[in-house]
């Protein structure tokens, strides 16, 4: 998992992401995020990197038990 900056233009990305949520209600925004998540995950592809990302995102909320492979 990359933790150093890897965007070609991070500010532009952030602004675009916010813009994409514009005019959506909470449910639609959640749906947009979920779609985006799956699209991005497919760009990453690598299972080990994705697992690290999932774990890193979850860290805020304490431990969880990943499914047995």
């Amino acid at each position: 998992m990359k933790t150093e900056l890897n965007f070609t233009d991070h500010d532009a990305f952030y602004e675009r992401l916010i813009a994409a949520h514009h005019g959506l209600d909470e449910a639609q925004s959640a749906q947009l995020n979920a779609r985006l998540l799956l699209l991005l995950a497919n760009q990453v592809g690598d299972g080990a990197v994705l697992a690290e990302c999932v774990d890193a995102a979850r860290r805020l909320f304490g431990p969880y038990s990943p499914p047995e492979a």
Binding site: Q31, A34, R35, L38
Partner: peptide, 9 residues
Amino acid sequence: LLRDAAISL
């Protein structure tokens, strides 16, 4: 929500 996203994509 995730399933809906997968189906719509």
